[in-house]
């Protein structure tokens, strides 16, 4: 079998690419589409650095075959900001110093957005469990959790 022609939507944009049948979505994003914001940390689904959404569901792109995305919607970190306007999660990560080296940050942001899309008012515990699939070795998670809770409040329009 030669390379597979895949038609998909990435960050809302109709996209076509060719991939090897074994190629993962992570490799296709990075190597075929030059979308290198999605990071590789382990390739076994244990670190979450490669988090993207597939039809709105959070997944590890290292555990998706690129060919599987035919006809589906893929969301990556590159699609999170609207033009020049950062998503509130991105802004809160900056304000709370919720990143140090920053390599896990795209994955955390994609995962946090998936959480807030389905649960706008999560507890600290919910945030911690929802982000347990994203490893961060720099921050001890404290500032990440605070940034997510703060962004959730802002998105809800809370002023407290």
């Amino acid at each position: 079998m030669g390379r597979i022609h895949v038609r998909t939507r990435i960050n809302g944009e109709a996209t076509e690419f060719l991939c090897d049948p074994r190629q993962t979505l992570l490799d296709a994003l990075r190597d075929e589409l030059q979308l290198t914001g999605t990071k590789e940390g382990c390739t076994t689904g244990d670190c979450g650095a490669c988090s993207v959404t597939l039809d709105g569901l959070l997944v590890c792109s290292c555990l998706v075959l690129a060919a599987e995305t035919e006809g589906h919607d893929v969301g990556t970190i590159e699609g999170m900001a609207q033009g020049e306007t950062l998503h509130p999660l991105q802004q809160k990560f900056l304000e709370h110093a919720a990143l140090q080296c920053g390599v896990c940050t795209p994955g955390f942001l994609v995962a946090a957005k998936a959480l807030l899309d389905r649960e706008p008012d999560p507890s600290e515990k919910q945030v911690r469990y929802a982000l347990a699939g994203n490893l961060c070795r720099c921050t001890g998670y404290d500032k990440i959790i605070r940034a997510v809770l703060d962004a959730a409040a802002e998105l809800r329009g809370d002023t407290r």
């Binding site: 990075r30 290198t36 990071k39 590789e40 999170m80 990560f93 900056l94 990143l99 920053g102 940050t105």
Partner: peptide, 14 residues
């Protein structure tokens, strides 16, 4: 910061 929250920052494998 902005490069790192938007995925633009280039790390080793990028």
């Amino acid at each position: 910061g902005v490069d790192k929250v938007t995925g633009r920052a280039n790390f080793g494998a990028d």
